[in-house]
Amino acid sequence: MTEQSLDAIWALLLAARDQRGRPGDQGRTFGLRLSADGQPELRTADDAQAALIWRGDAFEVGPGLPPDAVDFVELYLPVLAAQPEQPVVVGHLGQSIDAQIATRSGDSCYVTGPENLTHLHRMRALCDAVVVGAGTVAADNPRLTTRLVAGTNPVRVVMDTDRRLTGDQRLFSDGEAETLLVCCRDRVSQEEHAPNLLAAPRNGAGLDLQAVFAALRRRGLHALFIEGGGVTVSRWMKAGLLDRLQIATAPVMIGAGRPGLALPASETMRACRRPPFKLFKMGEDVLWDFDLRGEAPDHKESAPPRQAPVRLQ
C-alpha cells in the first residue's frame, strides 16, 4: 500500500471503531466504504463497494476493500467487534528471540522496532482503554497515547496493587487522557473518593481481575488493550480474560533479562496450549496473533498449519 492508501484504510478502521457497539444497535447491519476522495462513508451492508461490513456482532472484509489492504485490516478486525454485550481483551508483549521483554536492569526501549511501536499506537486508538502494570510505568514512564497515528487517546489504566507508584509519573498529570489507578481495597482509606481511583479485592499477590474487568465494563470500557508488562499480561491470561494474545518477536538476544509470558507448567507436550494463530511481519519483527477463544477447550488439538508471515505496510 502507498502511504496515502494506508491513511485511507486507517481512517476506515477508525470510522468502524466509532460505529460499532452503539446503544440500541444490537443486530443492525451496515457497510463502510471509501469515497472517491478516500473518506469513509456509511452505507448498507449489501453495498457492492462496502470495504467493511458489520453483521451485528463483528466486522468482515467487504468486496470494496482493496486486496492489498486485506491482511492489514484483518489484524485489527477482532478488536473492532467489542461492544457492551461482547467485550474484547487483547494482550501484547514485545520480546527478544530468547523471550525477554527487557534487560536485567529493566531497560526495554526498545526491544521491538518502529513498525511494532506504530502497531501499539494503532491498538490504543482502536481500544477504549490501555492497561499496564505499575512496573511498566515505573520503568518506562510511558505516555500511552496515540501520538504516532490518527485517533483518540484511550483511557489509561494502571494496575498498582499496593500503590507503590509515587504519582510523579507524567501520565498522572499530563492531562492527555483520563487515567485510572487500580489498587487493592486495603490500600484505600475510607476518606478517599477520587474519581480516578478504582479499588478492587485482592487475589494472592495481585488483584481480583474478574472484579477489575467488571468495573471497567461498568465504565463503558469494552475494548481493552493489555500492553504490558510481562506480569500484567500473564495475570490477565491466567485469569482467562484474554481473547487474543499478540507477541512481537525481535531479532535480538538479551540474555538473562526480564522474561515475558509466565504461565502454569504443563506436564506433557500434549497438554500444552496450541491456539490458532496468524503471523504478521513488522519490519524486522514478527508478530504472532493468537486467537485464544478459537482453541480447543482441552488445548490438546494438533498445531495449526504453519503460515508465511504477512508483511504489513
Results as ranks from 00 to 15, higher is better:
Met1Cys: 08
Thr2Cys: 06
Thr2Arg: 06
Gln4Arg: 15
Ala8Asp: 02
Ile9Asn: 08
Leu12Ala: 11
Leu12Asn: 05
Leu14Gly: 05
Arg17Glu: 09
Gln19Lys: 13
Arg20Pro: 01
Gly21Ala: 09
Gly21Cys: 07
Gly21Phe: 07
Gly21Asp: 14
Asp25Thr: 10
Asp25Cys: 12
Gln26Val: 07
Gly27Arg: 10
Arg28Trp: 13
Thr29Pro: 05
Thr29Ser: 14
Thr29Trp: 04
Phe30Lys: 07
Leu32Ile: 06
Arg33Asp: 04
Leu34Pro: 02
Glu41Val: 13
Leu42Asp: 09
Thr44His: 13
Asp46Gly: 03
Asp46Leu: 05
Asp46Val: 14
Ala51Cys: 07
Trp54His: 07
Phe59Tyr: 15
Gly62Lys: 06
Pro63Gly: 08
Gly64Val: 04
Gly64Arg: 05
Pro67Ser: 09
Asp68Pro: 03
Val70Ala: 00
Phe72Gln: 06
Val73Gln: 04
Val79Phe: 10
Ala81Ser: 15
Pro84Leu: 04
Gln86Phe: 08
Pro87Gly: 02
Val90Ala: 10
Val90Ile: 14
Gly94Trp: 00
Gly94Met: 10
Gln95Met: 11
Gln95Pro: 11
Gln100Val: 08
Thr103Tyr: 14
Thr103Pro: 09
Asp107Leu: 14
Val111Arg: 09
Pro114Glu: 14
Glu115Phe: 05
Leu117Val: 10
Leu120Lys: 10
Arg124Ile: 02
Cys127Ser: 15
Thr136Met: 09
Arg143His: 09
Leu144Lys: 10
Arg147Asp: 11
Val149Thr: 07
Val149Asn: 02
Ala150Met: 05
Ala150Pro: 00
Thr152Tyr: 08
Pro154Gly: 03
Val158Ser: 01
Arg163Val: 06
Thr166Cys: 01
Thr166His: 08
Thr166Arg: 14
Asp168Pro: 03
Asp168Phe: 11
Arg170Tyr: 03
Arg170Asp: 05
Leu171Arg: 02
Asp174Trp: 11
Asp174Gln: 11
Leu181Asp: 03
Arg185Leu: 09
Arg185Phe: 00
Glu191Gly: 12
Leu197Ala: 00
Leu198Ala: 01
Leu207Tyr: 04
Ala214Ile: 02
Leu216Tyr: 11
Arg219Lys: 12
Arg219Leu: 07
Leu224Pro: 07
Ile226Phe: 11
Glu227Pro: 01
Val233Ser: 11
Ser234Gly: 12
Ser234Phe: 13
Met237Val: 08
Met237Glu: 15
Ala239Tyr: 08
Gly240Ile: 05
Gly240Glu: 04
Leu241Tyr: 05
Asp243Val: 04
Arg244Pro: 00
Leu245Gln: 08
Ala248Cys: 13
Ala250His: 10
Met253Gln: 11
Arg258Ile: 15
Gly260Phe: 08
Leu261His: 14
Met269Val: 15
Ala271Gly: 13
Arg274Thr: 07
Phe277Ala: 13
Lys281Ile: 00
Asp285Glu: 14
Val286Tyr: 03
Val286Met: 04
Val286His: 06
Leu292Thr: 08
Gly294Trp: 06
Ala296Trp: 05
Asp298Val: 01
Ala303Met: 15
Pro304Leu: 08
Pro309Ala: 09
Pro309Cys: 09
Leu312His: 15
Leu312Tyr: 14
